[in-house]
């Protein structure tokens, strides 16, 4: 495993920890999109079906279980926890996320590495992950006051994606036969979606003002 991959996984892990910290200690999910969290729960459930079929490493298995467990429990907290759910910005979080799933499924049926159930689900999870952040970005734009934890959560998620792109470049040059077009294209699309957010985040950080996205 190279340093970019490890750093990518760690930023992903930190993003989840930041979100859990916000939910557990502050008992708030203000500014967090339930739609995006539901999409992530679906992304990890469909991608990690290979937990039952292929063993890669203990690290891999543990990380998969963490991402599965955390994404599902975050959805549960936002929907059912009696305190946390009250802070959910339901009226602002109106992205019709189910509409993203059908095109992703159709694309996965058409473009996959092999036409098997696991491979189609795997491709579906990559396409869906690429667009899963959209409801969150829309919600950020609508929320006038973005708190620090929410800003850091999205920043860490974006950093995780950018580090994965560096990891692919590194692997392409150091490993033989390492070519994964589906992962790369959907991963680059996903990273580009963060570009705008990065820009405003660093502007606000540089000028030492509160993060606000233009309407």
């Amino acid at each position: 495993m190279n340093i970019f991959r490890l750093a990518g996984d760690m930023t992903h892990l930190f993003s989840v920890l930041v979100l859990l910290l916000k939910i557990h200690t502050i008992k708030s999910c203000a500014g967090i999109s339930l739609k995006t969290q539901e999409l992530y729960a679906i992304v990890f459930t469909t991608r990690y079906l290979d937990l039952f079929t292929t063993y890669i490493s203990l690290y891999n298995t543990i990380m998969k279980l963490i991402f599965l467990g955390s994404s599902i429990s975050i959805v549960w907290y936002m929907r059912h926890h009696k305190v946390v759910r009250r802070s959910y910005d339901k009226d602002q979080d109106t992205f019709r996320h189910y509409l993203l799933m059908l095109p992703c499924l159709l694309l996965a049926l058409l473009i996959n590495e092999k036409f098997t159930f696991l491979e189609v689900m795997w491709a579906f999870s990559l396409y869906l992950e690429a667009v899963a952040i959209l409801p969150q970005l829309v919600l950020l734009q609508r929320t006038r006051n973005i708190d620090n934890l929410t800003g850091q959560y999205v920043l860490l998620l974006g950093a995780y994606r950018a580090l994965y792109v560096l990891n692919w470049i590194y692997r392409y040059f150091t490993e033989e036969n390492y070519v994964h077009w589906i992962t790369w294209v959907s991963g680059i699309v996903q990273t580009l979606l963060y570009a705008d957010f990065f820009y405003y985040y660093f502007q606000s950080w540089k000028n030492n003002v509160k993060l606000q996205l233009p309407a």
């Binding site: 991959r5 996984d9 992903h12 290979d50 292929t54 890669i56 891999n60 490993e175 036969n177 994964h180």
Partner: peptide, 10 residues
């Protein structure tokens, strides 16, 4: 293996 390279990522 070649086939599963890439599937080792999260």
């Amino acid at each position: 293996t070649k086939e599963s390279a890439g599937k080792d990522e999260l």
